[in-house]
Amino acid sequence: MKKINKVYVLLASVVLMFSMKSNAQIVKAEIRATGLTCSMCSNAINKQLKALPEVTNVETDLNTNTFTVTLKEGNELSPKTFKEKVEKAGFFIGSLIITAKSETVSKSPYIIVNDKKNDATEVQFQVVDKGYVTEKEFKKLSKSYKDIATYVANSEDDFHIKILN
């Protein structure tokens, strides 16, 4: 009888581990790039983003220089991945808006800078750190978030986010 109980506990533990891992993920990223002057520029970014195995689709809007990246379920990407890919193509991020499972933003390395609450299963947020907004916007945000010690420290391992919905 004791052996059967141990099997049930072990089985329940394994199921719980796998179900928890699948909740933390980015669903979609909207990247507005800066410095683009032609369609060849957008092709360079498009190529970098499509090279990620987690990407299922990239839609490009040449009028706004926005790339909407749809991702596979269960991915473990962070905003840093998108920044690196855009910079590898020779450009910069002017804005990064992410749609993610709500459980994702409740964990480190995400730090919420506004008090907006969201009970939905998915949450949309903007990364407001240096390198994820324009230089002008970052200067403005630095004044607004000067009381947040981690924002002032400007660590590349923390992602300060503003909940949008």
Rank of each mutant, 00 (worst) to 15 (best):
I97E: 11
L49W: 01
A89L: 04
P53R: 13
T64C: 11
K50A: 03
L71W: 02
N75A: 03
K85N: 05
A51E: 13
K80N: 10
K85M: 05
N65R: 13
E54S: 13
L49G: 02
P53L: 10
S78P: 00
E87I: 06
V69E: 06
L77I: 05
E54P: 04
L49Q: 03
K72E: 13
L96S: 04
K80F: 09
G94Q: 06
N57S: 14
T68Y: 12
E59H: 13
K101Y: 12
L49I: 04
V58F: 11
T64D: 10
Q48G: 00
S95V: 06
E87Q: 12
S95L: 11
L71I: 03
T56D: 14
E73L: 09
T60C: 05
K88V: 09
V58E: 09
G74E: 08
A89Y: 05
T99Y: 05
F67Y: 14
N57A: 15
E76C: 00
T60D: 10
P79C: 06
S95A: 13
T60N: 14
K85R: 12
K101N: 15
S78K: 11
K85V: 01
F92D: 08
V86M: 08
L52C: 09
E59I: 13
V86P: 03
V86F: 03
N75I: 01
K80W: 05
G90P: 02
Q48M: 03
K50W: 00
N65I: 10
F92I: 01
K50S: 04
A100C: 09
